[in-house]
């Protein structure tokens, strides 16, 4: 008596092989989340993403209103449109969350990231690194005879480009903040 007509000895499952019916067209969205600045709030947000299998491409958090104990989280995430909607709804129902905005769909916005880039080298490479940093409007925030630390601000793509150019010029290490974002206009 084998209702699904499976061969005796078969271990075929049914439900687990199903494809995601919501489609697999991926989008990247930048969300800003205003939260109570209380213990564990970042762990809650990160736990939501890991527990439900959502992606975090970038995440920044800092207090933005000391009096009101509010922090702002900027999270860049990738998923299908349905998953992005779920992420917003899941964030929105969390008790310490005051608001969730999807900057990717709510009009124009500005996104910036800051990076500190350490480059070591001497001679022509050092000069070329300096020259390139001027093109990118990176600032030198630390300097020795064999090294620079550049501070560069911009879109993630600009920083990517700068870091790529530094590789042959003696790139040592990179520290990036992740994206902070805000909507344009009023």
């Amino acid at each position: 008596m084998n209702a699904l007509h499976l061969k005796k000895g078969s271990s075929k499952h049914s439900a687990y092989d199903l494809k995601n019916p919501l489609g697999d067209h991926l989008e990247t969205h930048t969300l800003t989340v205003l939260v109570d600045n209380e213990a564990g709030v970042l762990a809650r947000v990160i736990g939501l993403f890991s527990g439900r299998g959502y992606n975090i491409d970038s995440l920044t958090v800092a207090e933005v209103d000391h009096e009101g104990h509010l922090s702002r989280i900027t999270v860049v995430t990738t998923g299908t449109p349905a998953v992005i909607e779920q992420i917003k709804a899941q964030l929105g129902r969390m008790v310490p969350v005051h608001s969730v905005h999807d900057l990717t769909v709510e009009g124009a916005s500005v996104e910036r990231e800051l990076a500190l880039v350490k480059v070591t080298g001497t001679g022509e490479k050092r000069v070329e690194a300096m020259r390139t940093s001027e093109v990118f409007r990176a600032a030198v925030v630390d300097s020795t005879l064999e090294s620079f630390v550049f501070e560069i601000t911009g879109t993630p793509e600009k920083i990517d480009a700068f870091v790529r150019l530094m590789v042959p010029l003696g790139l040592e290490e990179v520290a990036r903040t992740g994206i902070a974002a805000i909507s344009r206009g009023t």
Binding site: M1, N2, A3, L4, L6, G9, S11, S14
Partner: peptide, 8 residues
């Protein structure tokens, strides 16, 4: 197990 796992 009867329906899906070969009656094991």
């Amino acid at each position: 197990q009867e329906l899906l796992h070969g009656e094991r």
